[in-house]
Nucleic acid binder design. Sequence first.
DNA 1: GTATTTGCAAACAATTTGCAGCTCT
DNA 2: AGAGCTGCAAATTGTTTGCAAATAC
Lengths: 154, 154
Amino acid sequence: MLSMERIIEIMAEQGLRITDQRKTLARLFAEAPGYLSAKDVYDYMGQKYKGLSFDTVYRNLRVMQELGVLEQIVFEEGVKFKLHCSEDHHHHHMICLQCEKTYPITFCPMQLTESPDDFQVVKHKFEVFGYCKDCREEAAQEPVKAAAGKREAR
Amino acid sequence: MLSMERIIEIMAEQGLRITDQRKTLARLFAEAPGYLSAKDVYDYMGQKYKGLSFDTVYRNLRVMQELGVLEQIVFEEGVKFKLHCSEDHHHHHMICLQCEKTYPITFCPMQLTESPDDFQVVKHKFEVFGYCKDCREEAAQEPVKAAAGKREAR
DNA sequence: GTATTTGCAAACAATTTGCAGCTCT
DNA sequence: AGAGCTGCAAATTGTTTGCAAATAC
């Protein structure tokens, strides 16, 4: 995964200016374990920069996404961002519903899927959602939240 | 797949009123081959009902979705609707990027995916996008659009 | 010094809500 | 008749834009 320094470097190489705000943003994503929404970013950055505006957050998220530093995913609950996976081999993710951390799945179902009716495959999406080990252990300690971990897998 | 009559029946059973507009809506979905956005529905319905308002469309889509008649899917381009799959066995879809028609995939990759790190799986998403036979043939006739069919599969 | 960034306000798109009148049953 | 629909206007949410002032290089 990219380090904060490397992110800044990439941005600088493209002629972008390295503002204090962008450094913080780079650090935030370099350290964030999971997905972040625009609001998450705004809330976090807002602590440090009073008077921060939402549009700047959006602008920077977009710039970083166009640069290939961030990847944007559409969840049912909205759009979220995280560092673009640098692994070059194609892979998928297991995503924790609690902490939103992702775990790679090397297996790709596409190899095993036969295309009926001459369907020409262009792209595919395979995502697994659930609870990661850490969150399950945490849940086991807090009886209130434990129930959430009990749903049936399918 | 549900027929227009069956949809109306389901709605009536729940004490919902069967308005002319809802009948048209039911027919639209019963006959639509692919996904429809709220705007698609509005545009179509608007032809017949002048003075139709967007909020009524949204309200009816929501009602039908809560009833389980429609299913809602979030694409990158926005939210779309289609009749809920009545097949009771779990399955996935191939979705045509041109006509948005869907083709069932019986194979489920989840059976073959091992969960590392004690990840407790709750749900998963597997969707394949591409061009269906019909749209490819159409594209082959129209040289302008043919290029769209040439992208690499992965 | 100059091109980029930023915050502000305002625009925008998609969706939801409150309300008064109209319509199905 | 009465509960449930509908259209209207207005509110909400999420995101984008134009502009002048501030800042990085």
